[in-house]
Write a protein that binds this DNA or RNA. Structure first.
Lengths: 210, 210, 210, 210
DNA sequence: TATGAATGAGCTTTCATTCAT
DNA sequence: TATGAATGAAAGCTCATTCAT
């Protein structure tokens, strides 16, 4: 995950490398990305790249993690899902999710990387990386889930890990669907509302059927 | 999609090639799969491979399609979702889905290929292949969706394409979750029930909130 | 040079093969021409091609020779260069040469093959072929040269083979130059006149310089 | 045109690669030349070849250009064709041309490459290379032509481009003819004299026919 | 007489990585 | 701390030709 040496570089040079790598990975995915092209675009030497990073995977992991962190930094911390009832929980979630999507829409390269993530993640050498990355996103989801259960907004009759996985899958599907549509920023809130409504239906506690 | 020559081969040789390719694609995905390895494992010459198939993509498409067809052949046609009310719709869907999952569990390599499908599908050269393949699966989903709406089991206030995409995402997530758990065939029905219950919550028509 | 078997084929099939080969060789030259494409275009089997011809070179040689012969057949036999004086010799030559060029302009594929000839001829395996081909064109040139010398139109102080080679080179250069110009059929006679005039200057007997 | 890296190599290694490539291209022409053979003969790795040159065409261009430059360097700059009358023009041209041919006779491999040049030049990817190369030879020909016209040695009733093309064709033909003869260095001047005499006849201004 | 299945050598090119300096 | 030269394995793919039938 980026040798300490890299962090000692002057920021503008870190940025140059990061940006070059982000563009390359976003454009070609992990496999087809070429370190040679990154090196050339970044204007550093081949030896330096291997001096700063352990290899292609290491670079990929660092870029993904850094950009991902930047995304959350940009959106800000999640709200306090505990404060309120089920209704306020869902509307807070919708708000936050919408903000995330909007931020992501503003970083098309990160979005492209994330979309290629599932492909890259199959590489066994990535599981370590994957673990680190998920620690950046899953925790708040877990906390939101726990909070949702506390306020009675989320069912607790299924394993939490299943709920999380399915929620991520629904989110990814929504992302995919949005990508395949003619983009209309104004209608985003409506779509997000639709998705959250589906999630609510899926994850809300079952009511007894009369 | 496999030159006719290939189909004239003695079945055991077709099988050898198919099996070698399936294993390679399942293990490495399309990109990282090596035709050379397939050729070696199948015990044929390089020229023969290109005599039978038009290239890597062609081989992949043929393997995916063949295995996919085999899966549905094994499970049989979907039931008539129109016959009944919402309740019978959902239970019929659950039954059928459970059968699919059970069959898939018996073909881990096909499962692996399917999991890599979304990654491969990004390749523009695949859209033709993708189209053919989806025609094998999407139609029954669409029909099921339409039937579900007719019998009042599925909401119609959201675009059908969104519902389908999200449903597939949920299914994929479930698949993923099952892969990550210690496999316990006996508990599969319960998990499927849970998933269908979530789908039902997500896709059932909204009831007025009192 | 085409096995006798080939000549027993029904003419339309001979034509199909000949035409397919001509197009391929004209379009790609000898080296880059693909027998596979010829076979496919001709609608015959691979085995048949090798049953009729000895290989790629053999096919090329046959096509070139046949088309070349056809060209001369179309234009007709050269005039009797012996009948007249130097002046009539040169005008007869100009007439005949113009007819050849016009016929060649009507067979762009043969023209393309001829243009690629010098490239193909470097292949040592071609020298036999080359010899055969030249026997179709050189003889009348030799006869014309001899006649020209008899009537006092052509110098005899240089080796005949050199005169012939240079004459061919000048003709090829003219062909090349015509190819590189915007084509204007009406101005062809003028260009031919210019070329023959140059040839006349080059090959006419030296007059004593006063 | 040869990456700078190549020029940093110790001269003997540059020579080894250059020589291997020259021999291969001379023997087989561009198309049939095999980079693998060059690599093997040069005793370098495949990766190194692509580290030094951009590909087959790049190598060819570099070899051709380098050898061509060497030829002119060896012969020296063309004389001042403007100084004198028609008679001195033609004798100066003959002198210079003889020197060129003598130098070329000492580099049979370069001669072979040049002979294959017209074949290689058909490749569209070569037009850039071709342009660079022609700038080394065509200019002095053009200047000589213009000078010849100024001093009244060359006709001006035909397009200059046609004159140049035909002159090159005659030169190439002479080259070809010399190659096909038993080589006799002592008779070269006589042959050159014959050729120049033909050129003079072809390109000298027409005298009025009485 | 005719077929077409089968082949393996060959092609150009890309790439991540190493290592001496 | 930084460089960039050097590499070899691997990739996908084409081809003319052979040969059993």
């Amino acid at each position: 995950m980026a040798r300490p040496r890299f962090l000692k570089l002057p920021p503008h040079q870190q940025q140059a490398i990061l940006q070059a790598a982000l563009e390359e990975f976003a454009a070609h995915g992990f496999h087809d990305a070429s370190l040679n092209r990154v090196i050339e675009a970044a204007g550093i030497s081949k030896g330096s790249m291997y001096y700063y990073f352990d290899g292609k995977e290491d670079l990929y992991a660092y870029v993904a993690q850094t950009e991902f962190a930047g995304l959350f930094e940009q959106v800000g911390p999640p709200p306090d899902f505990d404060a309120g009832d089920a209704e306020t929980f869902w509307s807070a979630l919708e708000d936050y999710y919408r903000q995330l999507l909007q931020a992501l829409a503003a970083s098309p390269q990160l979005a492209a990387m994330l979309r290629g993530w599932s492909a890259a993640a199959k590489n066994p050498a990535f599981q370590e990386v994957q673990g680190e990355l998920e620690q950046a996103s899953v925790p708040w989801i877990e906390q939101a889930l726990a909070a949702g259960q506390r306020v009675g907004a989320i069912r607790d009759d299924l394993p939490a890990s299943l709920l999380i996985t399915v929620a991520l899958g629904m989110g990814e599907a929504m992302d995919l669907w949005l990508m395949s549509q003619p983009v209309d920023p104004e209608s985003l809130p409506a779509h997000v509302h639709g998705l959250i409504d589906m999630m609510r239906g899926a994850f809300a506690p079952r009511r007894p059927v009369h």
